[in-house]
Amino acid sequence: MSLRQDTRTGSVRRRTGGQLPLVLLLPALVGLAFLLVPLIGLLIKAPWSTLPSRLFSADIWQALRLSLLCATLATTVCLLLGIPLAWLLARASLPGRGLIRALVTVPLVLPPVVGGVALLLVLGRRGLIGERLDLWFGFSLPFTTAGVVVAEAFVAMPFLVISVEGALRAADPRYEEAAATLGAGRWLTFRRVTLPSIAPGVVAGAVLCWARALGEFGATITFAGNLPGRTTTMPLAVYLALETDPDVAVVLSLVLLLVSVVVLASLRERWISGLR
């Protein structure tokens, strides 16, 4: 009896489907509930009757537009810098690679507010590099939209690097070697062979990166401050609304949630179908 026969009759599939081990299923359902219950709470507590008027009374759209713009720009920055960094970590023979990899994940561990202070100390008006920028070009990052992008990219980049590095390690290096033996240079090989083969990893990393940037609060408010239209992203608006009117904060959170779910779900569909 061959395996193929089994699959054809469908008995293999049915057996795995019918006997989902309870040891896995139970914690999986608890995990799902744990993630969804706060969300449901938000939906239940939302001031549905006054929702339409609140949607237009606050500066929601301005904050939302800024959030989407900054998260997308931050993701672009992360892609441009993060993919080469991931390649370096996965392919190049570096001394102390383990240490560098650990350092790359530092923004994940660092409380975002501390990350924001660190950015100020380096890129602020009196910062190590920022002072030169201010002196030579009369340009300073804090309190600007560019500052928001920098703060978000700082916090979100590790998600992309880790994901792309994992994809690079899982990719078969023999294709790159084959391309090299056929005379392709390293850049051409990277562009035409490596990058397409790790595309799913890059997409997954970019999605994580974008989502993290969209929800970024601590580093943004510390480094870029909070000024409506310039640096007030949705999470900042939510936080300040919570100070006076929790209902508005709930509405803002719902809008942010809805937009991010729609964007992520639709993009994911498109990417996955494009990859097939």
Binding site: V117, I221, N226, T231
Partner: peptide, 13 residues
């Protein structure tokens, strides 16, 4: 203002 801080300590920082 260039920034409207979330609390007085943030403004002080």
């Amino acid at each position: 203002p260039d920034s409207l801080e979330q609390d007085v300590k943030a403004a002080l920082t």
